[in-house]
C-alpha cells in the first residue's frame, strides 16, 4: 500500500540509506538488554520454588507443570478476560471522548478555551492517591463498588488522552478543514471526515497507551473489587503471595502468560501504527 505513494515513502527512506551492519548490531544488543529480564522471567517460570532464589538463570530441569499449576490456583483465563474487557472498554471510551474533546481544544475557537484546557491538564498534576478515598466514596454512593463499571468509568475520562490528541491535531494543517468548511461541511463532518482520519496515528497511539496502562492497573481495582470472579489479572496475581512467602516460580509463569496476549495485540496494532505514521506524516 505504501508503494502506491512514493512521496510518503521518502519520509523514512532517506534515513534508511545510512543503515549499515553496525546499526543492526546496536539494535540487536539493545534488544537483548530489553529482553534479558524477560528471559530470566521465562526461565524462572520453569524452576522449582527453591531454585527461584538461586543466582543461576537456568532451571535444573524444565518444570512444565508450573503452567497447569497456575490454572489450578487461579482462574487465569477468567482474570485475563476481565482485564481485556475492562481495558478494552476504557480504551474505546477514552479514545472516542478524547478525540471529541481534543478536536474542540485544538480546532475550534471558543472563549475561554485555553483556560479550560489548562485546568484540564492541571488535574493530572495531583497524585491520584489523595482522590482515592473521595472517589471511592463516590463509587459507594453510585453503587459501583465491586462492579466492572466502577473500574471502567473513573479510568475512561482522563485528561491525558485529550492532551495527547490535542497535540496531534494541532499539527494538522488548518487549510484542510478550512477547505472543508468552505465546501459547507458542518463541524461534525469536519471532525468525522477530515480530522479523525488524519489523526489516525494519534488515535492508535492513544489506544495502545490506554490499553496497556489499564491492562496493568493494580491499585484501584485492588481496592474496588471484592468478588474473585471479577478480578482483573494484576489483582489476581496476588494469590501467589501467601503467608508462607511468595510462589515466585508460579507468579513468573502467570506473568509470562499474561504478557502473551499483550504482545499479540501490540503487534496487530503496531501495523496500524506504522501505516498511520507513514500516511499521517503531515505537519503544519
Amino acid at each position: 500500500m505504501a508503494e502506491t505513494h512514493p512521496p510518503f515513502r521518502k519520509n523514512t527512506a532517506h534515513q534508511a540509506q545510512r543503515s549499515g551492519p553496525w546499526l543492526s548490531l546496536v539494535l540487536v544488543a539493545l534488544s537483548l538488554l530489553m529482553i534479558a529480564p524477560f528471559v530470566w522471567m521465562a526461565l524462572t517460570s520453569f524452576k522449582t520454588l527453591s531454585e527461584s532464589s538461586d543466582p543461576e538463570w537456568m532451571p535444573g530441569a524444565f518444570r512444565w507443570g508450573n503452567y497447569p499449576e497456575v490454572f489450578k490456583i487461579i482462574p487465569f483465563l477468567r482474570f485475563a478476560a476481565n482485564s481485556l474487557v475492562i481495558a478494552g472498554w476504557v480504551t474505546v471510551l477514552q479514545v472516542f471522548t478524547s478525540a471529541l474533546a481534543a478536536f474542540s481544544f485544538a480546532r475550534l475557537e471558543w472563549p475561554g478555551r485555553d483556560r479550560v484546557f489548562f485546568l484540564y491538564l492541571a488535574t493530572m498534576m495531583l497524585p491520584g492517591l489523595v482522590t482515592l478515598i473521595p472517589t471511592f466514596q463516590l463509587m459507594v454512593r453510585m453503587d459501583m463498588v465491586d462492579t466492572y463499571l466502577g473500574l471502567v468509568l473513573p479510568a475512561a475520562f482522563g485528561a491525558f488522552g485529550t492532551f495527547l490528541l490535542r497535540q496531534f491535531m494541532l499539527g494538522i494543517p488548518r487549510a484542510l478543514d478550512e477547505a472543508a468548511e468552505i465546501d459547507g461541511a458542518s463541524k461534525w463532518q469536519i471532525f468525522w471526515d477530515v480530522i479523525l482520519p488524519l489523526s489516525r496515528p494519534g488515535l492508535v497511539t492513544l489506544a495502545i497507551f490506554t490499553f496497556m496502562g489499564n491492562f496493568q492497573s493494580f491499585f484501584w481495582p485492588l481496592v474496588m473489587m471484592k468478588t474473585v470472579d471479577k478480578f482483573p489479572l494484576p489483582v489476581g496475581l496476588m494469590f501467589f503471595d501467601t503467608e508462607r512467602g511468595q510462589a515466585t516460580h508460579l507468579l513468573m509463569a502467570a506473568v509470562t502468560m499474561s504478557v502473551v496476549p499483550l504482545i499479540i495485540i501490540f503487534v496487530l496494532l503496531q501495523k496500524q501504527l506504522i501505516r498511520g505514521i507513514q500516511l499521517g506524516g503531515v505537519k503544519g
Binding site: 475557537e109 471558543w110 472563549p111 478555551r113 475520562f157
Partner: peptide, 30 residues
C-alpha cells in the same frame, strides 16, 4: 462567540461529563 462556545462545549461534553464526575468532584473534595 456564543455559537462558537456552544459548539466547542458540545464536542467537549462526553468527556467533560465523565471527567467532572470522576475526576473533578473528588479533586475539589481533596
Amino acid at each position: 462567540p456564543r455559537r462558537r462556545l456552544v459548539s466547542g462545549i458540545a464536542f467537549l461534553l462526553p468527556n467533560i461529563l465523565g471527567f467532572a464526575a470522576f475526576t473533578l468532584v473528588p479533586l475539589v473534595m481533596s
